[in-house]
Amino acid sequence: MKISQKITRKLITLALIVILSAIFAATTSSFLKLINIQEILRVAAYTGIICVGVSFVLISGGIDLSSGGIICFTGIICCRLAVLGLPWPLVVLAAVVVGAACGFLNGWLITRFYLNDFITTLATGFVFSGFGLLAIAKEPSGTVMSQTIRNRGFLMLGKHVGGFYYIVIAWVVLTLIAWFVQTRTRYGLHTCATGSNAKSSEMSGVNVRRMKVMNFTICGACCAIGAAFTVAYQQTAYLSLGSGMGFDAVAACVVGGVMLGGGKGDAIGAFLGAVFMTIVTNGMRKYGLDTSWQYVFEGAVILIAIMSDAGFAVVSARRLKAISEKNANEEALMEAQKGGGAQ
């Protein structure tokens, strides 16, 4: 049986992860250490949980750059509520509700006013960071105050069990749920259809606007979950929380084969993308290179990923063109035979 393109793409990412890991393991002494793997998984989980949400938006043909802002806002809310001593499920629930509301706002603005999602989410990202500044604890004089969370229940979320941080467990669970939703439910298939061709979806009875709004909402909720775990680990929230995450998450998704423009990819791809990007950053650090070279290398990895996607498309288009030409020839042959038979 031939392996489908979707699987091939994932196997390639997986192979790259293994090869790169092997190289790092062979050339550095600390890459394979237990604590380093724990650390890779912890960092990848943070990016990865955001990627789960972003993948929904990307598959439906949109883009969300406001994740950083939502993380900042919801993270600060987590911090404040946890300091107040609320039990952790309530804190997380509140953050998720606020995150979902932020995502809903994104979707509503984009579909209601027919805005471009790139620029809209770029703008709302700033707005949400601004909300974060409004929400953060302040001194009576109006200056920002740094709060330390001592809420034991909430801090649990930042701990680990059997070597696995809770955030890693959450990441795997969320990824599996998202993958199931994306590939096995009506909702997921409608999301994919919306990204593949919004106009066709409309004509096929898919409520495209509702799909978009829902996907942005899911993305906001995922950002809040990621933020809650990270705040629990760091025991505090600050204004630069989540900065740069908007682009990082999109980049990781793309590396994992979630297509910009929609219609292709799933949460497993996003998962692998997050692992890959984290390994690249982690491994490169071990060479003691200048940070500038790390940036260059990370950028190059993203470029190579999208270039190979383009190449992939060309190759498969050629292969399939051959198939369809073969079919056309067969059809013509059959027509001729039919004609011959009739005579």
């Binding site: 439910t185 009506r186 409608h190 593949s196 096929s204 009875g205």
Partner: peptide
């Protein structure tokens, strides 16, 4: 532009409008 989903499979293109019959509680 209005009829099909180029990247999606033949299967998905056929069933896209029939999930009311092919899914229960949203699960396909």
């Amino acid at each position: 532009t209005e009829g099909f989903f180029p990247q999606l499979s033949i299967l998905r293109n056929i069933v896209i409008s029939s999930y009311d019959r092919l899914s229960s509680l949203g699960f396909v």
